[in-house]
C-alpha cells in the first residue's frame, strides 16, 4: 500500500529499497525530496539545477543503497548525496562559464539563492529576508559550509569530505561565514 509505506520508519523503507522495492524507494524520495530540494536550491541558487541535483542524488542513492551500513541513517545519507551533487553542479557550472563565458551563460552568473543585490537590503524586514541577503553576499566557499551545516546538519568531517577540504578548514570557513552573516545582519557588537 502506497500510503501505508508513507507511515513506515526510514529503516524499513531503506531495507526494502535495498532489496529492490521501488515503491519503498519512492516513499523515501517523497519523504525527503522537499528537504533535498531546499538544500539544493540554496546551494545552487537555481530551481532548475536543484531539481536536476535531486534527481541525480536519487539515482545514485538507488544504485548505492546496499552500501548503506545503517538503514536508519538514510536521511542524512540522502542529504549528503544531495550536497555532493550540488557542489558538482556548481563546479560544472563554473567550468562551463570559464570555457564559454558568453554561451548560454544566463544562469552561470546568477548569484546563488537568486537574491537581489545589497541595495535592496533596506527592504529586508524579517530575519529570514536579512539572512537571505547576507548569504547571497557571502563568499561561495563559506556559503557552502554554512548550508551543509545548517540545512543538512552535516558534521565537520562530513562537510570536509563533501568539499574535499580538511575539517580544520571547515571549522574556519564556518566561523568566518557566521561572523560575516552576523555582522551583515546586525553588526558585530
Amino acid at each position: 500500500m502506497r500510503d501505508q509505506l508513507d507511515l513506515v520508519p526510514d529503516a524499513i523503507l531503506a531495507g526494502r529499497a535495498a532489496d529492490g522495492d521501488t515503491a519503498a524507494f519512492e516513499a523515501l524520495a517523497r519523504r525527503y525530496g522537499p528537504h533535498m530540494r531546499a538544500c539544493a536550491r540554496r546551494l545552487t541558487g537555481s530551481h532548475a539545477d536543484a531539481d536536476d541535483v535531486v534527481q541525480e542524488a536519487l539515482v545514485q542513492a538507488w544504485k548505492q543503497l546496499d552500501s548503506l551500513r545503517e538503514p536508519a541513517a538514510v536521511k542524512g545519507w540522502l542529504l549528503r548525496l544531495t550536497g555532493s551533487r550540488s557542489i558538482d553542479c556548481l563546479r560544472r557550472r563554473r567550468n562551463h562559464a570559464t570555457l564559454s563565458a558568453d554561451d548560454d551563460g544566463g544562469q552561470a552568473v546568477e548569484p546563488p539563492a537568486g537574491e537581489p543585490g545589497p541595495e535592496s537590503s533596506a527592504m529586508a524586514t524579517s530575519g529570514t529576508e536579512a539572512l537571505k541577503l547576507a548569504l547571497a553576499r557571502l563568499p561561495e566557499e563559506q556559503r557552502r559550509c554554512w548550508v551543509l551545516k545548517e540545512f543538512n546538519g552535516q558534521t565537520y568531517e562530513q562537510i570536509a569530505q563533501t568539499l574535499n577540504i580538511s575539517p580544520a578548514s571547515v571549522r574556519g570557513r564556518l566561523a568566518r561565514a557566521r561572523v560575516a552573516l552576523v555582522r551583515d545582519m546586525e553588526g558585530w557588537r
Binding site: 525530496g33 531546499a38 539572512l131
Partner: peptide
C-alpha cells in the same frame, strides 16, 4: 543567527513543496 538559520530553512522547506 542559528535561529534565523532554522527559520530560513523552514521557509525554504515550505517553498520546496510536498513530496
Amino acid at each position: 543567527l542559528s535561529t534565523a538559520g532554522s527559520e530560513l530553512f523552514s521557509s525554504d522547506l515550505a517553498d520546496a513543496g510536498s513530496g
